[in-house]
């Protein structure tokens, strides 16, 4: 479980995360949705200790994020930010191998290699494993980075807009993979996501944010309501039920 209590963060005078308290349940997929500037990504980076918070506390799997050693946290939770660029030339397999650093400290064992191959396979990267990361397309690069955090093999996986740059096929495959990680391996997956319909179809819990505040937390059935979404996004969204999934129609 990830427990947030009274988490705040300001940049200068702008409050980007404002008194957020929530409990994100274990073993499932949780999506954080909200308009641009809602504080979703900042909240994720506070949970993952990439940025220090101004007030409040976060506990991931019982570990206080502010007080636990970075190495121990790295074996508990993995985070991938939206933008990742490399200054050096690395092959995909070497990048993914970095995911094992918290476990092996740079000297991979046979077990580590197993995790690396598994992650490459899961992200459909086996044929690209010996290519250089900077020669890949945006979507392929995104998958390479996700493979790295997958190889980290942590109970908690935080992804900031993992569908960025991915085409429809790979978006669906990505969400199915996250679902499988939660269902079969018992991982706790938290994603920041823009497409409310992906959030609706694949998550157990949705957190809806706006203006730095957590407005609603609930199941897709509770959040995918016209009045709730209107409050979050400021537009009218018609909700249709298709094959048991609630789909928001907002294109026209």
């Amino acid at each position: 479980m990830i427990r947030l209590s009274g988490v705040c963060k300001s940049y200068g005078t702008a409050r980007v995360v404002d008194q957020v308290s929530a409990e994100i349940p274990s073993e499932g997929v949780t999506s954080i949705i909200g308009p641009n500037g809602a504080g979703k990504s900042t909240l994720l980076s506070l949970i993952s200790r990439l940025q220090p918070m101004d007030a409040g506390s976060v506990a991931v799997g019982g570990l206080d994020v502010a007080a636990t050693g970075s190495r121990e946290l790295a074996r508990t939770m993995a985070i991938l930010r939206q933008e990742n660029h490399l200054t050096m030339r690395l092959k995909v397999r070497d990048l993914v191998a970095f995911g094992r650093f918290p476990h092996s400290g740079g000297r991979p064992t046979a077990e580590d290699r197993g995790h690396i191959e598994y992650a490459l396979e899961q992200l459909d990267l086996l044929t690209l494993a010996d290519r250089f990361v900077d020669e890949l397309s945006g979507g392929q690069r995104q998958r390479a980075f996700i493979a790295m955090v997958l190889a980290q093999d942590t109970g908690y996986l935080l992804l900031d807009e993992p569908l960025n740059n991915l085409d429809m096929k790979h978006s669906v495959e990505m969400m199915r993979l996250l679902r499988r990680l939660a269902d079969e391996l018992g991982k706790t997956v938290v994603v920041v996501i823009h497409d409310i319909n992906f959030a609706s179809c694949y998550s157990d819990t949705i957190l809806a944010m706006r203006g730095g505040r957590l407005l609603h937390q609930g199941t897709p059935g509770q959040i995918m309501q016209p009045e709730v979404l209107r409050e979050v996004y400021d537009i009218d969204i018609r909700i249709e039920e298709i094959d048991g999934n609630r789909i928001g129609v907002y294109f026209a």
Partner: peptide
């Protein structure tokens, strides 16, 4: 420090994620 240096070259966020006390 050679292995840690490899990780640091990935950038701050990735290095922190991989457990380096940046």
């Amino acid at each position: 420090l050679r292995h840690t240096l490899d990780v640091l070259a990935l950038g701050r966020d990735t290095a922190v994620n991989l457990g380096v006390d940046h």
